[in-house]
Amino acid sequence: MDGVSFSLNAGETLGLVGESGSGKTTTCLSIVGLLPRGARIVGGSVVFEGEDLTRKSQRELRRIRGRRIAVILQDPMASLNPLFTIFRQVAEPAFFHQQMRGKTLRQRVKSLLAAVRIPSPEWRMRDYPHQMSGGMRQRIVGAIALAGGPSLVIADEPTTNLDVTIQAQYLDLLKDIQRETGVALIFVTHNLGIVAKMCDRVAVMYGGTIVEQGPVRAIFDDPKHPYTQALLGSIPKLGSRDPLYAIPGQPPNLASLPTGCAFHPRCPQAMERCAIDEPTNVHAGDGSVARCWLLAPAAAPSHG
């Protein structure tokens, strides 16, 4: 990923939209300092509640992760340990970060499970993950995320494996929790429907950069970047059987990105300079920002 910038206020929800390989998961892992070996943040900063996380040691980060920033991943079975009871796993953040023990800890776990709408929590907390349904497991992961009382939750495709009615329940639950606790949410998804339902702001990623971001209404009403436009046109809408707009070609490989604008080989409005110069951010009046030469007609012409 390359030169990604965005900001998020308390209680706000940001949607990070992109296809596989667009860099959205890498962005999230950089925030919490969990990049795989070999990957490095070579520039820029991650400022969380006034502190730059890129300058923190792993030890300091460990105290932030799970407590002030929590992560919910796509597959709850991969996040839960099959050998430990639900109680032990939900209790862990409160045990380590808040030194809760005994009865207080039990009470805390019970209220967390109740908060994510697990029926009869005092019984279910003795269960193991395999005894629960997919929707319940994902709510358990949600309970673990909330256990430390975080001010930011990063949810990476949390509902992709869930059935539609269960997905709707889970999204409603996250909204309720956000209203109650004022937690900020980063929602990583490829599904624009989730963005329309959940988010205040959107950042659209393509080829490792954010190509457009802005308030959710501005993006849906008047998308500026051809990729955003194409993405919105390619989704089936209920009650309409008009042909879909098909974006030609494939998403690019991050290891061999096209020169200039990464989207230019698939862009219906590509110009000569798009293949040569990387576009810069242009601010539009409605609060959105897009990286596209179409928006900068007056910009300096390409050299050469």
Binding site: V164, T165, G193, I194, A196, V216, R217, F220, L238
Partner: peptide, 23 residues
């Protein structure tokens, strides 16, 4: 219920009433 659970195509789509409970 399936329609109520379907995701909106625009943030201003009419809000669906609560979806069904349970699994």
């Amino acid at each position: 219920a399936l329609f109520a659970a379907a995701l909106p195509s625009h943030p201003d789509d009419p809000k669906q009433e609560r979806t069904i409970a349970g699994e």
